[in-house]
Amino acid sequence: MSDIKIRAKSKNGVTTVKCLMSHPMETGLRKDSKSGELIPAHFIQEVVCKAKGEVVMTASWSGGVSKNPYLSFKFAGGAEGDPVEITWTDNRGQTQSATTTISS
């Protein structure tokens, strides 16, 4: 359905990760402009970010995060070539994962 773009860069012992996911992020409160019916909620609920297999950050989201979500975070450590993995799960149980390696 979609893909995750990740970029991880290490500088002075701190790794900055930026990623873009592609997801409609429907709140469940919006109405279809033609039929006037509510569009059912469909949004990413949880994003798990791992570096070298260890969880660095878990994000819990509501439908209030913009469509095609952008996420950035930083962590101490992380060497060039280490894997960074991002996995999201949405409210319908769909899940997607992507991995990149840290560059410097």
């Binding site: 950050m57 878990t58 950035s72 975070f73």
Partner: peptide, 14 residues
């Protein structure tokens, strides 16, 4: 955002 022990106190989104 739940931060692990290595995470910096930083989060950015839209």
């Amino acid at each position: 955002f739940e931060l692990g022990p290595n995470a910096m106190p930083f989060a950015s989104t839209r």
